[in-house]
Design a binder for these strands. Structure first.
Length: 362
DNA sequence: AAATCCGACAACCGCATCGGA
DNA sequence: TTCCGATGCGGTTGTCGGATT
């Protein structure tokens, strides 16, 4: 309910004349090119902030709030446009599991992305999947499904992107401390992430930022770790927490359903898979078809996690490391990393991530 | 071809928090 | 300490364009 409607409903603290005046004085709705130009030129001269003053002095018939929002969500030069990459989606899924609807906080770890954009992504994409499954997006069942199906698929997308680039994505970097000043990555440069972004979007390169937090999930800020007062170089230091690739990948988080992961088997049976994931109680119901047809589970498992992508990863840098990470080493025959094995090993990865999430509440 | 539906995203709104007077 | 304006955040709504009927 709008404020004016609320006022009217409450007995009307705003007179009709005031309403009319307000309507004449303040513009609402979509911004015009002229308004955008006016706002940008004002900020170019006076800088950001003091939004109410800006609104009064710039000639814009908008509220300070509206000006701020337009600038932060649309006009600011470092805003990234275009679809979220698999990497970014993975970050969102991970951080949302960790922090919930803290959109602004999540956005801080996706350079160039706004809280509004992330929020919209969650509502339109993630919650859509939850609706199709007839479960709550915050339920444990749905989180498990995300961990077991969606995240592996995103990992696969990243692997495919890496394959097309002939370099592995940063997730697969060895020694954990991905990129950004640590200097411990042995085979990849810090720009790999950006390279991947550059192939994934039509966004000008200067608008891109790094994704160090994908590999190194952020931790609660501490006074000593605050960016204020730290040098730019220090700000690039990886957070002192384990990266995905730093986890104890030799744990036995293999496909637990008893199926051999040797690459010789065909497509996994969906019921067996659900059972193996501890989701045998999950009734996908009539939504299952659309869920699958959206290339969310079986399509993913049966399709393009090809040996080509895996071979690329294997042959590059620490690909073998990733391979062992995924399959727990002994569980996967390195010579038979076909579709099933690849999918299953990524499921293993997802399960490991689920474990790192704690498996419990958000 | 027209009507309807639906997804994506920009924008608005209310409330909370912060900081200065 | 209190007040008040500025700012930030998250929920919700409105709009538009493409897809479907």
């Amino acid at each position: 309910m709008s404020r004016r409607k609320a006022a009217a409903a409450a007995g009307g603290s705003m007179s009709a004349m005031e309403e009319e005046t307000a309507d004449q004085e303040l513009r609402r709705g979509p911004w015009t090119l002229e308004e955008d130009n006016l706002l940008m030129s004002y900020i170019a001269c006076h800088g950001e902030g003091r939004w109410n003053l800006l609104a009064r002095c710039s000639g814009l018939k908008r509220t300070g709030k509206s000006c701020r929002l337009r600038w932060l969500n649309y006009l600011k030069p470092d805003i990234r446009r275009g679809n979220l990459t698999a990497e970014e989606q993975l970050v969102i899924l991970e951080l949302h599991a960790k922090w919930g609807n803290r959109w602004s906080r999540i956005a801080q770890h996706l350079p160039g992305r706004t809280d509004n954009e992330i929020k919209n992504y969650w509502r339109t994409r993630v919650q859509k999947q939850a609706r199709q499954l007839k479960v709550d997006a915050n339920s444990a069942v749905f989180r498990d499904a995300v961990r077991s199906y969606w995240m592996p698929r995103l990992l696969h997308d990243m692997a495919a992107a890496a394959s097309s680039m002939a370099v592995p994505p940063p997730l697969m970097q060895q020694n954990g401390h991905c990129h950004g000043g640590g200097g411990s990555s042995q085979s990849q440069s810090p720009v790999i992430s950006d390279q991947l972004q550059d192939t994934a979007n039509d966004v000008p390169a200067p608008a891109r930022g790094g994704y160090e937090y994908y590999c190194c999930p952020p931790v609660e800020p501490s006074p000593s770790a605050s960016t204020s007062g730290s040098t730019p170089a220090a700000a690039l230091q990886p957070a002192p927490v384990p990266c995905f690739s730093e986890l104890n990948w030799n744990d036995q988080y293999y496909y637990p359903g008893g199926a051999e992961i040797d690459g010789g088997a065909g497509a996994l049976d969906s019921a067996a898979l659900l059972g193996s994931l501890g989701l045998d109680g999950l009734d996908l119901g009539p939504a299952a078809e659309s869920f699958y047809s959206d290339a969310t589970l079986l399509d993913y498992l049966n399709s393009s996690c090809t040996s080509t992508a895996m071979n690329t990863i294997m042959s590059a840098g620490d690909g073998g490391n990733y391979y062992n990470h995924c399959g727990g080493g002994a569980m996967v025959d390195r010579d038979h990393h076909g579709t099933t094995a690849s999918a299953a090993c990524q499921l293993g990865t997802a399960r490991k991530l689920a474990g790192e999430w704690g498996g419990g509440g958000i």
